[in-house]
């Protein structure tokens, strides 16, 4: 429980920045995500006669992570349905916290991308930066890369959060502050984000693209620090964690280069959700393969 509330604290900088960047729209989305996730968990547990465990904070984290992983254009009902799906299908059906196969927030996000693909667009610039460029909607850095082949946005803008994107991914600085807190407190398995980021940096350098662009672009940092490190859906042992992270990094980069998309229906440029969920499937294997030998 201490860890759950620690995670909420770590997400506070990114959440506050989202509120600053998107004002009331962000507040409504975050409240909807958290309330829907908590309500879905409580209702499911009540209906199935299980002990209601919403006070452990895990459902609230799922709701918050999901709301930070959606575009500001998302209708509230789409987020509410996706949060409920993530909690029920991603967590409760398999028996609740600790028994889930997939990260519930990401399972909800995959559902959101699949069921409500139109609701993501348009990507909007944060309110404080709209006047400077005299526009509201803009391409995300990864969309710009897909369209022009250039890593065009300034790295400083990506670092500070002057770019369009999902609520929680726009400011790398805020995510790094939260991540530093998590690592300092020992709440995350640091080998996982370290191997994800190392893989991304190496692959982008080999491909001749700016590694820092790929490091700060998309939901890599949000996913790497806050979702891939979920203790219930990540490997327990160090070598397994490194393999898990490398796998995530490789899938992310493959999707950034080649994409998994259907023109006109699904046009995603980011693969963090798919990468982490895919590697979640291998966690039982990695746990058995890399279990340290008993002395």
């Amino acid at each position: 429980m201490k860890m759950m509330y620690g995670m909420l604290m770590a997400l506070a900088p990114a959440t506050l920045y989202a509120l600053y960047a998107y004002r009331l729209e962000a507040l409504l989305l975050i409240l909807t995500g958290v309330i829907s996730a908590v309500a879905a968990e409580a209702l499911f547990q009540k209906l199935t006669g299980r002990k209601i465990t919403v006070t452990d904070g895990s459902a609230a984290i799922t709701g918050l992570l999901l709301s930070l992983a959606v575009s500001v254009s998302t209708p509230l009902y789409a987020l509410a349905v996706s949060a409920a799906f993530g909690i029920i299908a991603g967590k409760q059906l398999l028996g609740g916290l600790g028994k889930n196969l997939f990260n519930p927030a990401l399972f909800g996000r995959l559902f959101y991308l699949f069921v409500f693909p139109d609701s993501i667009l348009p990507w909007k610039l944060p309110v404080p930066w709209r006047e400077a460029v005299d526009t509201t909607a803009a391409a995300t850095p990864l969309e710009a890369l897909r369209e022009t082949g250039e890593t065009s946005p300034e790295i400083l803008n990506m670092f500070l959060g002057r770019i369009p994107g999902t609520l929680g991914e726009i400011s790398a600085l805020m995510l790094l502050i939260g991540a530093a807190f998590l690592i300092y407190k020992g709440y995350v398995r640091w080998r996982i984000p370290a191997s994800i980021f190392a893989t991304v940096l190496v692959v982008s350098a080999i491909a001749g693209q700016n590694p820092l662009f790929h490091f700060f672009a998309g939901s890599l940092m949000l996913g790497g620090f806050f979702m891939a490190t979920d203790p219930m859906t990540s490997p327990r042992f160090p070598k397994g964690q490194v393999v898990f992270g490398i796998g995530i990094g490789l899938i992310i980069m493959a999707m950034r280069f080649w994409g998994w998309q259907t023109p006109g229906v699904y046009e995603f440029t980011e693969g963090t959700t798919f990468a982490i969920l895919t590697m979640n499937l291998f966690v039982p294997y990695l746990n058995s393969k890399f279990r340290p030998a008993r002395k």
Partner: peptide, 10 residues
């Protein structure tokens, strides 16, 4: 869901 997202256009 992953398959539909990637090959739905077909």
């Amino acid at each position: 869901m992953v398959a539909m997202v990637s090959v739905a256009g077909l």
